[in-house]
Design a binder for these strands. Structure first.
Lengths: 241, 241
DNA sequence: TTTCTTTTTTGATCGCCGTCAAAGAATACC
DNA sequence: GGTATTCTTTGACGGCGATCAAAAAAGAAA
């Protein structure tokens, strides 16, 4: 019954991916690139060094470059308005420097001394725009999936069930808007059990979380699949982590 | 002080991505594709229908196709040996059918009636292999990041702190192996506070989780940055969710 | 409708973890 | 080496959610 899944990814790249952690067949970075391509990369990528503890960029900064770690460990963290931060650790070969609306969405700092490629955003965009559209489409899709997975992680580090639920409802609302569907109500096609699993809580806990939001007059429910936000301000305060 | 970040993503694709949920500028699917490319896609993609509740594929099945939703909602879930499942909900435009070693890593079922493109894996691989290597590299990297983010979600859904810690240590060990580094010990370059944030627990809770593993003689610690697994079997049982 | 099944809610108890606080260790700095 | 700072551990307490169990509601089938 319940379930649990994870945002899915693209095509079966994995099967032949030499960079996957845990994959026994390890190869040297960039081995798959031709000399030409390597040269192209070298032209746009500068090699930069950071000492232990040094900030590489700050969340909210205007994004001007993407990084690829050569050696060392980078810790990236996204601060939320309230609640714990969401962390990730980046190792050699990892790309980082995710942007949203031209700004970094997280802060990156060197946990050990770090050497990395630094690629100006402009150059990367130029190269990508010369790619086949189909490839770009796949890349865009993967970025989407990645953002979804990250959002899921942000949701799951929240400790109180009501907040997770509020964040989930807000996400569903956003997805609905993105699909140009009416938004007077939030439509939840899945059953409670699936939602509970997605939120990483149990069914009774989810039920109580719903009740809490209703009692506080933040939402109303119509049947099982429709939710209406009646106190937008309180809702945003609850959901905006 | 700690932090929180999320695995990062690729280049600033986002800024111009019309498919991003929440992006006000919504466009029609495939708008960016030329007629040629659309024709190419049509040649390999079959349109398939699933009724409400129908399984699309099962976790562990040999993967033969990737899907792209045209309409309807799909619930994907990954079952773990123990503990709750990890869920995701997929909407029109979403890709799904992630594979690992040629097998699906999760189960997908139609939550509402679903219409989707079904693309044979072979065809997708053929198209991708004809792409520029640089693009493929980016795609591979993004798949990596995605897997990492998904693993993070799998970890965060676990309810007991010791299990999250065990999963984290196992991940670090795998990453170390992938980097061809010695693995007699697990090396943790980051501080406890960062680990606690990554695990979505507090510092005291992390400290107790470490202690619990040490007391149970599953690991030993040397200084702050080195951990050794001394009871491999118990460790695996603890970590393998 | 009536019945049966599935889903959801509610209740009660327990345990883990969050929270606050302080002591103890490791590191950096002088 | 000594001091100060930072990081980590330990302790006590309370709360939230897990767990178990049962009732209620919704949906499906007859």
């Amino acid at each position: 019954m319940p379930t649990n899944a994870t945002r899915m990814a693209g095509p079966a790249i994995h099967a032949t991916d030499p960079w996957t952690p845990g994959n026994p067949k390890k190869r040297v970075r960039h081995q798959l690139l031709s000399n030409d391509e390597r040269a192209q990369l070298a032209k746009i990528a500068a090699i930069v060094r950071f000492e232990k503890g040094e900030r590489i960029y700050n969340q909210g900064d205007r994004a001007d470059a993407v990084f690829n770690i050569i050696s060392g460990v980078v810790t990236a963290y996204r601060m939320l308005a309230d609640g714990p931060p969401v962390m990730s650790f980046l190792y050699p070969g990892d790309l980082f420097g995710l942007t949203e609306e031209a700004r970094y969405t997280n802060t990156a700092r060197a946990t050990t001394p770090v050497i990395a490629y630094k690629m100006p955003l402009q150059s990367v965009q130029r190269i990508l725009s010369s790619s086949a559209n189909l490839d770009v489409q796949v890349i865009v899709k993967l970025c989407d999936e990645l953002r979804q997975a990250q959002h899921h992680a942000v949701l799951l580090v929240q400790k109180r069930a009501v907040r997770r639920l509020a964040m989930f409802l807000e996400l569903q609302e956003h997805l609905q808007i993105a699909r140009n569907e009416p938004i007077s109500e939030i439509y939840l096609p899945m059953d409670r059990s699936s939602i509970a699993d997605y939120l990483g809580i149990t069914l009774p806990a989810l039920s109580r979380a719903f009740r809490a939001l209703v009692v506080k007059k933040i939402i109303t429910t119509r049947g099982r699949h429709h939710v209406k936000v009646v106190d937008r301000e309180a809702f945003k305060k609850m959901a905006d982590a």
